[in-house]
Design a protein around this nucleic acid. Structure first.
Length: 616
DNA sequence: GAGCTTTGTCATTCC
DNA sequence: CTGGAATGACAAAGC
């Protein structure tokens, strides 16, 4: 799938950028992001720098050692050569070559529990070390796992087995030109031999157990690789290696070939099967003949065994799908939930037809909670120990998968064909076929709500299936009352089945009703918000109009008072004396005539002092 | 770990 | 009386 050429042990910055780009382009790779994490790489670089410093210290010590050795020699004045001083009789050997740790990156001690002062290791010791290491490596060439073709490259992400040529036989080992530029022929040969180590092969089979866990080793291992500090000790003999093969395998290698296994063993059920070992990985038991065992039959069989609470015996065992094979591993029983979360691979090899393999809901095969009435479900959710006290046990139904399919077939003759087709499918699928296409989405899908909804709905599917109810939940829920009653009368269902069907119908109806209710509520809220907005707008308009009216009213009042005073100013008594507006007011009668009325004696004036206002 | 959202479910009321 | 719609309330799960 992904084929990135990263020719060196530690990818360069450019390589890592390329990895980043490619990772973003193909997030379905399955490789975890932390593999390419920038912080991660920074740690790696920091460790690399530290290793370089240690290397410098070693070389400095080496120089000091050589200097001290020279001090023990004396210059032969005749030949001009240095000869050992008489006191240093034990040091007659010429100046020792630099320890292989520095002269030859093949042999270093960083990963081995040697004393700190290992720089004093003699050349002979180093040679002995090599002898101890490589004979074992050569013995193990026969252990090559065909499923894991050894690739003599440190490329951590381009190890697509089908594309990489297998390494030549050990007899014809030659340095890979890809890596020769920085490590040299010795390094490459060491790599070739390292590839033949059985521990490595074993680790490669185990590395898929937990990529997170293995990659966690990377910061300590990569710098060593970068420095060429490879330790080729027989891993099984190394003092710091425990019996656990995972521990025995240098994490660098585990990490290095993570990409291989994402490509090779992408079907998620195989992941985490650490204790199966190479045999389990390649064993026939985990790859049953799909022709002899269609997925439906597998699932039906598994259902049968699950409900009986007894795992099938191996000889009678139906060909297991991957999840089942997985679940039989002791280790896997502890890891079933995480595995169920692992998405389907791109390879399409997954044998599990159930959408629950990737469902966040409890696994059908894991929690044992299906097969309970709705009223029991809550109790059972918190009581896994009683997980098998289900309807099947309580009512001892005799309903074989064949019966199930026959009933569905019968139903299909009476009902719409698409419903019958759904019935033949595993009931765990929701009856909306259009949504089934989304089940195989990868781990990076964002449609979790949808998956969750489907898984949620499948609870009733599970219950119905546990009671062998030969209808889909959609049928139970959506059929009209008459059709539903007719359906019920056609099939002789016992009391628990009828109760469950009624519950399913009620819940289904109520679920739709709740959805409609919420939808209506939301629409009401939206409508009220819209109404609020329009009312607010109207209020603003009215306020504007009111202010305009007020201003015009004030203007008219002002004009009226001006006119009033003007009229008064034109009025005068017999003596020509003007009337005071404070003492008199102008009043108009209904016939249009205007009178000047004294304010203080209004009533009086009205009756006796009425004078026509002469506005001349 | 608290808070929010979404969804399913139950109980209840009403038609 | 029954079935179903409507809805408030609660719980679980995810974010």
């Amino acid at each position: 799938m992904m084929d990135i050429e990263v020719p060196d042990i530690l990818p360069s910055q450019q390589d890592m950028e390329l990895i980043d780009i490619l990772w973003r382009q193909d997030v379905d790779l399955g490789a975890r992001r932390e593999v390419f994490d920038q912080n991660h790489r920074q740690k790696v670089h920091a460790l690399q720098r530290r290793s370089e410093q240690e290397e410098e210290k070693k070389q400095q010590r080496l120089r000091d050692e050589q200097k001290a050795l020279l001090d023990q020699l004396q210059l032969d004045e005749e030949t001009g050569e240095y000869i050992p001083k008489p006191l240093a009789s034990g040091a007659l050997t010429p100046p020792p070559p630099p320890p292989p740790a520095t002269a030859n990156p093949l042999v270093v001690t960083q990963n081995v529990n040697f004393p700190e002062g290992d720089d004093s290791m003699s050349f002979d010791e180093c040679m002995q070390l090599l002898e101890e290491t490589f004979p074992l490596a050569e013995d193990t060439s026969a252990c090559l796992d065909s499923a894991v073709p050894p690739v003599p490259s440190s490329d951590t992400h381009s190890l697509t087995p089908s594309k990489q040529p297998a390494p030549p036989p050990l007899a014809s080992l030659s340095p890979a030109p890809v890596v020769a530029d920085r490590r040299g022929p010795e390094m490459d040969q060491a790599w070739m031999e390292l590839w033949s180590l059985p521990e490595l092969q074993h680790c490669l089979n185990l590395q898929m157990e937990d990529p997170l866990e293995t990659t966690a080793y990377l910061p300590t291992s990569i710098p060593d690789a970068q420095e060429g500090n490879y330790t080729y000790y027989p891993l099984s003999n190394a003092p710091n290696v425990g019996p656990n093969p995972v521990e025995a395998c240098p994490p660098t290698f585990i990490h290095a070939f993570e990409g291989v296994f994402h490509d090779m063993v992408a079907p998620e059920p195989m992941m985490g099967d650490a204790d199966l070992g190479p045999k389990g990985f390649c064993g026939d038991a985990f790859y049953p003949d799909p022709v002899l065992c269609p997925p439906e039959a597998v699932e039906a069989n598994v259902m049968e065994h699950k409900e009986s609470g007894i795992l099938p015996e191996l000889p009678k065992k139906p060909p297991l799908n991957a999840v089942d094979a997985h679940s039989h591993s002791p280790l896997e029983r502890c890891k079933q939930e995480p595995v169920a979360e692992v998405p389907d691979s791109d390879s399409g090899i997954s044998l599990n037809p159930s959408p629950h393999a990737s469902s966040p809901e409890k696994s059908v095969y894991g929690d044992g909670s299906f097969g309970f009435s709705d009223s029991d479900m809550d109790d059972l959710d918190f009581n896994p120990g009683s997980a098998e006290s289900d309807y099947s046990e309580m009512f001892s139904l005799n309903f074989q998968p064949d019966d199930f399919q026959q009933s569905a077939l019968m139903l299909s003759q009476a009902g719409p064909p698409e419903e019958a087709q759904q019935d033949k499918k595993p009931k765990l699928h929701n009856a909306k076929p259009a949504e089934e296409g989304g089940q195989s989405e990868g781990p990076f899908t964002k449609d979790k709500q949808k998956r969750r909804s489907e898984a949620r709905l499948s609870r009733d599917e599970q219950r119905a299936r546990a009671l062998r109810i030969p209808f889909t939940v959609d049928m139970i829920t959506n059929l009209p009352v008459d059709d539903f009653n007719e359906l019920m009368s056609k099939h002789q269902l016992n009391e628990p089945q009828l109760a469950l069907v009624r519950d399913i119908r009620r819940r289904g109806k109520n679920k739709v009703a709740a959805q409609n209710c919420r939808k209506r509520k939301m629409e009401n809220i939206v409508g009220l918000e819209y109404e609020l907005d329009s009312l607010t707008e109207e209020k603003e308009l009215l306020q504007t109009e009111r202010s305009q009216n007020g201003s015009s009213l004030r203007k008219m009042k002002h004009q009226l008072s001006t006119l009033y005073l003007q009229v008064f100013s034109m009025l005068g008594d017999e003596e020509g004396k003007p009337y005071s507006p404070s003492d008199y007011s102008l009043q108009q009668t209904t016939d249009g005539s205007v009178f000047l009325v004294p304010r203080t004696k209004k009533t009086h004036a009205k009756s006796k002092d009425h004078k026509p206002a002469s506005a001349d």
